[in-house]
Amino acid sequence: MKPAPFTYHDPTTADEAVALLATHEDAKVLAGGQSLMPMLNMRFVVPDHVVDLNRIDGIAGIRDAGDHVEIGAMTRQRDLMRDAVIAAKAPIIPAALHWVGHFQTRNRGTIGGSLCHLDPAAELPCLMALYDAELTVQGPDGARKLPFAEWPLAYMLASIGPDEILTGVSVPHWGGNTGHGFVEFARRHGDFAIVAAAALLTIDGGKITRAAISIGGADVRPIRLTEAETALVGAAPDTEAFKAAAEIARGIEAMSDAYVTSAYRQRLAATLVERALIAAANNLAPNANGSA
């Protein structure tokens, strides 16, 4: 239960981190350590080098950029829960983070670490899918941006090279009369969700004008329920519309594992999508664009 020996690096700039990754074979990037450290302790991973991002200035923090919020990759989950800009512009993030581990792990865990680790049931990837957030990745040739839709390549595999680091994400602000809902089911509080569902609804004049639904834990990557989103736009936010969306959720591709069948995950997805939509319709908070 102790890590195998490795060489430790603690660069102070993102450029330096990328240069270290480019010149060292078999290096792992250490962010908050709430997933990597257990894997090191249990020797599930035995890297020759560990590149710690904790001493890099400028890749942590939250910035209000008007129609979107910029979040540094090394921003702690705790800081996302306490931040006034996030609370005003993307309140589903703190709501979902209550489900992430425990407060002691949220004190260290980072948004970037969670997105790179990419556990299928993790809440932050589910939310970034919901927003189709834009990610910024830095490599030896500079920075590139990509939408979250292109981020998960396969089970726990993100579109990031061995010599790249995620430096930040940009989360669009949904203005207008928007509500959010985040619900999940796990056997014990703090466990990874068996299925999680997130929803955003904008309502104007008694009709849904914009909708996003994402489901975590069901498949190897978060699923956007685009068919249901399209069907909801123009509809009244009522039981009938939400039940129809839930029926679409029941038809998603879902994983089976030793504990839970795919049929059970599909059934949970239907129930949770309906609950997330009801929650979203019930917490509408008029929120003018640009105001915090």
């Binding site: 430790y8 603690d10 350590g33 709430q34 450290m37 257990p38 302790n41 710690d52 904790n54 705790r78 407060f103 002691q104 792990t105 004190n107 260290r108």
Partner: peptide, 13 residues
């Protein structure tokens, strides 16, 4: 001042 897991943090950190 913040509660953390001391098994998930390196001494060097």
């Amino acid at each position: 001042g913040e509660a953390v897991r001391s098994c998930l943090m390196l001494a060097v950190q």
